[in-house]
Write a protein that binds this DNA or RNA. Structure first.
Lengths: 300, 300
DNA sequence: CGCTAAGATGTAGCCATACTACATGGAAGG
DNA sequence: CCTTCCATGTAGTATGGCTACATCTTAGCG
């Protein structure tokens, strides 16, 4: 019992279904039957009443009750709410994979589900302390360099477009040599944001090391602990669900973009009121320009 | 009563809090008191029992009950579950805005919340029929052109990187003139995917019109009904929460990327088994290459 | 191989809480 | 001023979540 509570607090970063899956081997046999029913079809399990679930699993109600405690819930009501919340995010492909006979609608639904639950995981795993350090570093920066290749390059481009919020010159050259040159020319107050989901990309590492050697600060944005995050002054690690099969879309891009949003917003909030006012003015004039001319596009 | 049901089915695309907000004027006075309590602090409202909520709103229990029916719930239990589900997605900034005295952790939390609930909205509003038509069009394509400016340009770049899944040549030139040239050279089986959140961007419209005139098929990806979606052969409309203030991050980019994921996956699923096998081989060899060399980057 | 003890599971009963039928109070309209 | 209808509260009911206790299984040890 105390163990359950302990685990619940320790592993609150996980979603209910993950917790159940992990607990299954430690459960008693009849409780496993309950777990099987729930994991098999979580959506209809959420509709069940306690008696219904007990009947479906061919066990007694107190067993269902004990099952709830074992997976870290306060009781059946709490269990039902937590399950509903997990389902609201959609099931990650771990639980429902994409197959060839899915209709386009199904595919859309599943990809949205997977993306959302992946972002939920990212939300749970991103360390606030690291975010705070990153924002502090950028606030003190004279200029920012964003680097990344492939999908991570797209994130870098997006970050560069947010330079009005960052408030200092930002560059995100696509060419490796250009990146290297820019990194080498880092000053003591230059910040380099090195992006790579794997954290193993040789070129990105090279650029990050060059920036570091030149005396700049390196913020890394990776999907896990890796060489890049190890060498960075401020490592940002944001976990998503890995691509398990061919059709799993990569959600690390999305999570990366959200982190960039967070940094940009966090920095803008801490800048001077004049800067904030300028950003506000820019936004409203941009909107006005769009209304009249229809020539602008949405850089936000 | 029948009205409630009708509305519930009609407006099931909305989240519970939105529904409550919209219903407020049509509610009786004491029901409005309940609504006020719920909207004021939805998080702690979700903890309430029926009696507790009745006491907090200084009304009787049946009034709470009637309130639940009025906002399209089956009863109080259903209400509680729907509320919990809405909260699981996080509150969009409509309900909790970002202020200067938020800690970096708060900012991160709020931006994640806003992004996730925005994607949830996108999930609810994207028409499956349109997705199906878009996939069909791409399956029949000889080549694809992605166009967009600013944030939408980033989406175009990302889409271009997914060409292995699409299975036909894809281009996404950043330069307006290049885009125009490419569009003008569209053949009867060329597909142009024109991306603009506002759907008013003059350049994007110009390119889309050129592609259309040349005999190609135009798929639009916009945030609302607009000139671009009107002229497109296949309009994809994906709604998100608008940027209400300076610090609201734009979530249309994210939703756009997810739609691209959906198209790419939907198309890949319908391609020949040989094509699927080739993609699978590419993915595994890419992974192997990363493991050994550490030179690759994550294009997925 | 049997006995014992601990753990797993079911039974029975209680209490809370969601829900419903009905009554009362108040407001609007004639 | 009376009447009617609508809003709101009161009282009662039953379902469903939860708990104390009994029974059965199983494993460990003599």
């Amino acid at each position: 019992m105390t163990l359950d509570v302990e685990q619940a607090s320790e592993e609150s970063t996980d979603t209910l279904l993950e917790r159940i899956t992990r607990q299954v081997p430690h459960l008693r046999r009849s409780e496993q039957r309950v777990a099987a029913i729930v994991l098999d079809d979580p959506v209809s399990a959420a509709q069940f009443t306690m008696a219904g679930l007990a009947e479906a699993a061919e066990v007694s109600e107190p067993t269902v009750m004990r099952f709830c405690s074992s997976v870290g819930c306060e009781g059946f009501q709490d269990f039902k709410i937590q399950l509903a919340q997990t389902l609201a995010l959609g099931l990650p492909v771990t639980h429902s994979s994409i197959t060839a006979d899915d209709s386009p609608g199904d595919v859309a639904e599943k990809i949205f589900d997977h993306t959302i639950s992946s972002l939920d995981r990212a939300r749970r795993t991103l360390a606030p302390a690291a975010v705070e350090k990153a924002i502090a570093a950028i606030l003190d920066a004279s200029d920012i360099l964003f680097v990344g290749f492939g999908a991570s390059g797209v994130i870098a481009q997006d970050a560069q477009q947010k330079f009005p919020l960052f408030g200092v010159p930002c560059q995100a050259p696509e060419d490796f040599h250009q990146q290297f040159i820019a990194a080498t020319m880092s000053g003591p107050r230059s910040v380099t944001v090195a992006i790579s989901n794997t954290g193993h990309t040789e070129q990105t590492l090279t650029v990050a090391r060059a920036a570091h050697k030149a005396g700049g600060t390196v913020i890394s944005l990776t999907g896990r602990t890796s060489p890049l995050s190890e060498m960075a002054d401020v490592p940002l690690i944001v976990r998503t669900f890995e691509d398990t099969d061919v059709y799993t879309p990569s959600t690390s891009r999305l999570a990366g973009l959200v982190v960039i949003d967070i940094l940009a917003t966090g920095v803008a909030l801490r800048r001077s009121p004049e800067h904030t006012a300028a950003v506000r003015r820019m936004k409203s004039e941009l909107a006005a320009m769009r209304q009249s001319d229809d020539t602008g596009e949405d850089p936000s």
